[in-house]
């Protein structure tokens, strides 16, 4: 791989690294695992980069590679789970945790999201990133209708957690 390619890649990744960090934040629960997953996402992006065509946006392309790495390719999460929890988020949700302040609401919501399975996390992630259902369905490889139905179910689930 030539230096020019490497340079253009690093420049783009530096600019859009936030996407990978957000995926790591969602799929790992400690500092080491976060870095580990970020490293793997970088490798996968770099390997796929020569085939990246400029007609797609780098960020759009990056969402797919980062999520695929987190959901399918990454296999170290088990090893590093349950060490110190950098987000300070607890795992068990109790209805007593609920408090009407925004901060409390957010805390409970983040807790709830962390308990979702890998696929539901991907759905909520793409929703939070303002992706439309077409892009969500294309990223995950499911139909648009099913993406919408599932998303509504997750929303209802989160709402129930907040308003028991």
């Amino acid at each position: 791989m030539n230096k020019e390619l490497e340079h253009s890649f690093v420049e783009l990744l530096e600019k859009h690294q936030n996407i990978a960090h957000k995926v790591c934040r969602l799929y790992t629960n400690n500092y080491d695992a976060h870095n580990d997953l970020f490293q793997e996402i970088t490798i996968q992006l770099w390997r796929a980069y020569p085939k990246f065509r400029g007609d797609a946006k780098f960020s759009t392309w990056m969402y797919r590679v980062a999520l695929n790495t987190a959901i399918t390719l990454y296999r170290k999460s088990k090893r590093t789970i349950n060490t110190q929890d950098f987000s300070g988020v607890e795992f068990k949700i109790k209805s007593e945790d609920y408090d009407n302040t925004e901060e409390e609401q957010l805390k409970v919501l983040y807790k709830a999201i962390r308990q979702l399975n890998d696929i539901d996390k991907a759905l909520i992630f793409l929703y939070l990133e303002d992706k439309d259902y077409r892009e969500i369905s294309e990223t995950l490889g499911i139909s648009e209708v099913n993406a919408r139905v599932k998303m509504n179910r997750i929303k209802t689930k989160l709402k129930t957690i907040l308003n028991p």
Partner: peptide, 25 residues
């Protein structure tokens, strides 16, 4: 979620060595 990130911001200097590490996929 869309507030400016609290994650550490890696510089190009941090990213370069990452490209040449081995994958564990």
């Amino acid at each position: 979620w869309n507030k400016p990130s609290q994650d550490k911001n890696l510089s190009a200097k941090d990213i370069y060595p990452m490209l040449h590490k081995k994958s564990s996929s």
